[in-house]
Design a protein around this nucleic acid. Structure first.
Length: 866
DNA sequence: GCGGATCAC
DNA sequence: TATGGTGATCCGC
């Protein structure tokens, strides 16, 4: 959509802040700004929505106040020092300024509304908006004169403009039109970056070079002609294009018929049809400059879709985006690739125009007297003391007119979610049901992209518009509706319980899955799998295609001998960890990583499970010696691998493993492990040194009176449903050992952190036992036969234990995490040690200046820093 | 890793 | 009567 930001400003800012400073252009016809604001206020005042907006505003004001206090404490010396450092960076930036690229930002004008108008001539001269009575996606320019904007609820829009026609969105249609536009764009930059259905960036640098040698013929386009009455229209449009674009006013745009062609004639002129003399009556030749190229693009878009687009041309994406807004609608603007041209343009540019500077950032900067880019530059030293490094560097880029000069390809998706707004739902039953439905939907979407992830997040918005998110990360990826729901349900339950006896009065619920394994992870896994299964094992088919390089690596171990193979490394790590004295240091919040041999086995077992032939005897290839092991049982094979590794029996590891895992960061998790492990070591005395030690260590660590209670507490955390539906079993050492068992081995890592080996995956588990699944935490038999689900259950149980532990911590402040934490002095609060610092070497900041939470210019940052 | 916030579209 | 959905990122824990 074009300038959603501006729409929000005029609507919300004026509504809430009544600052009257934004450049709302709604005044010429329709309603004047004051009247618009009055109507909006009347419609909104006293609503819950408004109440929440006020609350949020107060928070922002508080942030600003904090910032101002910090500002007041900054000394002249600090500022001078900062100035030097920032200027050094600014100089580097200046030196690396790149004006050699021609970036174009294309933005379709009032896209959805324009499509609807095009396809329904009755709407042509009327104010329309696309959306629903609760929310509008966009409005046409006619409606905008009444203050009707995107992101405005339809019922308020109706008050502003009673004649307003609200059209429900037809996304399929918009997608189809968008595709047509993109086909054109691809001619100029096959790697163009689509930001949405109606917006895209192009890098036409290469096209421009090639175009210089193009004959006129190649730059010639024929104007499609409709019936006689319309004949002149297109030509007129084209002529307009050759004139100053500024002369094309919104009024002209509004008045020009959206359907230049009669409805019946849908044929479009394109390159293939150019030779058809019957269609062609007129033609236009575009020049070779960037400006001409963009005119050509817009011309072609209009010819093909009967829709207009606006465009910006500049040396980088940030500027191009701002430019495309300049002569909207149906206009274009160029910043010439000269430093001075850039600076002139930037000079008085309000920072709010820049993508990434939103309402809050604008307000915070305004409090510092910063409205334009010039002011942003002038205050650069101060900003470096008040904002995070990410933020002030971003600000500096903007203030110097810098941005990305190349378009980065879309990275991999990081999350997927579904959420829904509804009329109040307060009954827990209905909330669970809804949650389940959302999980199902999400699972379907995930399946389409073949995604699995480890973090489930639920989002709740109550009737007062207060938003909460709650997340849980489990050890193995999940993707099915059942798996996700098992986790989401518990998160929801915790929230419901927390407010008991009051119900959660919800107006929105959402479920998100994230922590998808990245490419690295996948390759890693592949390698492990291939290593085990490549030798003529059919199960390869289950893993899909294998990369050649990976394959080679395992097929020719001898040739690889000069390098340390993956397993070699793991083997030495393992030995090293055996020799090293174990230190029981935990880092709060530290993730647990799988130790390799275990991981490998897990993956292999998964493969066995998923393969069609899951008989016990398989042909295995040892990942250590790379010898085929013939048709043997898994257990025998495991023993062989162990022998190769010189480590403990794999079968022991299996039996000494946990059916699930979570992060070992809370003590009660240790406790449950210890209890279990204790039993385990009694029955299995052949534990490795390291595990034995660990067991002792752990048992000692938690050997206090509350330990048994902790386990009980965990099982008590289970819902009534679960308790009633499951057989009540006392903690059973035998089961603990056979079915789940707990602590595996602990490695001493470089960081000195305590890590637990990745616990066994359910499928591995299934390989070795077909007994009932009993949760090692709550000790209850689980109904499910789905092992992933079982795993999820155990993770949840463990997480619940963590929650329980936190509650205990609250009650008893003495019970604080002791490792890797430091007291902050005054407050007595405990902070986690900073393990990672993003600060660049040369930059230091005043220790007194606590960072203000900066804005989050998502893709702007992408664009800036990639 | 979690939760709140900000931003874009 | 009534104020969206999806995805990303950052910061401080």
């Amino acid at each position: 959509m074009d300038s959603t930001k501006e729409k929000n400003d005029s609507y919300k800012d004026d509504l809430l802040l009544r600052m009257g400073l934004n450049d709302n252009k709604a005044g010429m016809e329709g309603l004047d700004k004051e009247k618009i604001n009055k109507i909006i206020m009347e419609a909104t005042k006293g609503s819950r929505f408004y109440g929440n907006e006020l609350k949020k505003e107060k928070q922002v004001n508080q942030r600003i106040e904090n910032m101002m206090q910090q500002k007041a404490q900054i000394t002249g010396q600090q500022l001078r020092k900062a100035q030097l450092q920032v200027d050094r960076f600014a100089m580097e930036l200046e030196q690396s300024r790149d004006l050699n690229n021609t970036i174009v930002h294309i933005d379709m004008d009032a896209f959805y509304a324009a499509v609807e108008m095009r396809d329904n001539p009755e709407l042509k001269d009327k104010p329309i908006a696309v959306g629903s009575s609760s929310m509008l996606s966009t409005s046409n320019y006619h409606a905008r004169r009444f203050g009707v904007r995107a992101a405005m609820p339809g019922f308020i829009a109706k008050r502003l403009c009673p004649q307003l026609i609200i059209v429900p969105p037809n996304f399929d249609k918009y997608r189809a039109v968008s595709k047509e536009v993109k086909e054109i764009l691809a001619d100029y930059d096959p790697n163009f970056m689509a930001m949405s259905l109606d917006e895209a960036y192009l890098n036409i640098t290469k096209h421009l070079q090639e175009r210089q040698n193009w004959p006129e013929d190649k730059r010639k386009y024929f104007i499609k002609t409709g019936h006689a009455l319309e004949n002149d229209k297109p030509r007129k449009e084209v002529n307009k294009l050759s004139e100053h674009e500024r002369s094309i006013s919104p009024l002209l745009f509004e008045d020009s018929p959206p359907d230049l062609q009669p409805p019946g004639n849908t044929s479009q002129v394109n390159v293939e049809e150019q030779n058809n003399p019957q269609i062609l009556q007129n033609s236009v030749v575009f020049g070779t400059s960037a400006e001409e190229v963009v005119k050509e693009i817009r011309f072609r878009i209009e010819q093909k879709t009967t829709l207009t687009a606006s465009a910006g041309i500049a040396p980088n994406t940030m500027l191009a985006k701002v430019c495309s807004d300049k002569n909207k609608p149906n206009g274009q603007y160029q910043i010439l690739p000269k430093r001075q041209a850039v600076m002139d343009f930037i000079k008085d540019l309000p920072i709010r125009k820049v993508s990434g500077i939103g309402k809050v950032t604008e307000k915070m900067l305004k409090a510092l007297g910063i409205i334009t880019c010039t002011e942003l530059y002038q205050q650069r030293a101060l900003l470096s003391l008040l904002f995070s490094e990410t933020s002030w560097r971003y600000f500096l880029h903007i203030s110097m007119g810098l941005g990305s000069t190349h378009l980065t390809r879309d990275g991999e998706r990081k999350s997927m979610s579904v959420e829904r707004t509804f009329s109040e739902i307060s009954k827990a039953e209905e909330q669970y049901k809804l949650c389940q439905e959302l999980c199902s939907e999400l699972a379907q979407d995930l399946q389409k992209e073949g995604l699995k992830g480890r973090t489930v997040t639920i989002k709740l918005k109550n009737v007062n518009f207060e938003v909460k998110t709650r997340a849980s990360t489990v050890s193995s990826v999940v993707s099915t509706a059942e798996e996700i729901f098992a986790i989401a349900k518990e998160l929801l339950r915790t929230e419901i319980d927390a407010d008991f006896p009051h119900p959660l009065r919800l107006r929105l619920m959402g479920v998100r899955l994230s922590s998808f394994p990245n490419e690295e992870d996948k390759k890693h896994q592949q390698r492990s799998i291939v290593g085990f299964l490549q030798a003529g094992n059919q199960t390869l088919s289950a893993t899909g295609c294998i990369e050649k390089t990976d394959k080679d690596q395992f097929l020719k171990p001898v040739e690889m001998s000069h390098k340390k193979s993956f397993f070699d490394k793991k083997r030495s790590e393992r030995k090293w960890s055996h020799q090293d004295t174990f230190k029981c240091e935990t880092v709060n919040g530290q993730g647990v990583q799988a130790s390799q041999p275990f991981q490998v086995l897990k993956k292999m077992s998964e493969n066995l499970e998923t393969s069609e032939s899951s008989s016990n005897n398989q042909i295995f290839t040892c990942p250590v010696c790379f010898r085929e092991q013939g048709s043997i049982s898994l257990e025998t094979f495991n023993k062989h691998v162990d022998a190769c590794l010189g480590g403990p029996s794999v079968s022991e590891m299996f039996s000494c493993s946990h059916a699930s895992s979570t992060e070992v960061k809370k003590e009660n998790v240790h406790r449950s492990f210890s209890l279990c492990e204790k039993q385990d070591s009694e029955t299995h005395q052949k534990n490795t040194e390291i595990t034995s030690e660990d067991c002792v260590e752990l048992v000692e660590t938690v050997c206090n009176p509350s330990e048994a209670e902790s386990v009980n507490a965990l099982s008590n955390e289970l819902s009534k449903e679960e308790r009633s539906s499951l057989p009540s079993t006392s903690f059973n050492t035998e089961r603990c050992h056979q079915n789940s068992s707990c602590a595996v081995s602990l490695q001493n890592e470089d960081s000195g952190s305590l890590r637990r080996q990745e616990t066994l995956q359910p499928r591995s588990y299934e390989v070795i036992t077909d007994q009932a699944l009993i949760c090692p935490v709550c000790n209850l038999e689980q109904k499910t036969s789905d092992l992933t689900l079982f795993n999820v259950h155990v993770d949840i149980c463990l997480n619940k234990g963590i929650i329980q532990e936190l509650k205990e911590d609250k009650v008893n402040p003495v019970n604080q995490p002791k490792e890797s934490t430091k007291s902050t002095g005054n407050s007595g609060r405990v902070q986690k040690t900073i393990t990672k610092t993003k600060r660049s070497g040369s930059m230091t900041k005043s220790s007194t200046a606590k960072k203000i939470k900066p804005n989050n210019p998502r893709h702007t940052l992408d664009i800036f820093f990639k």
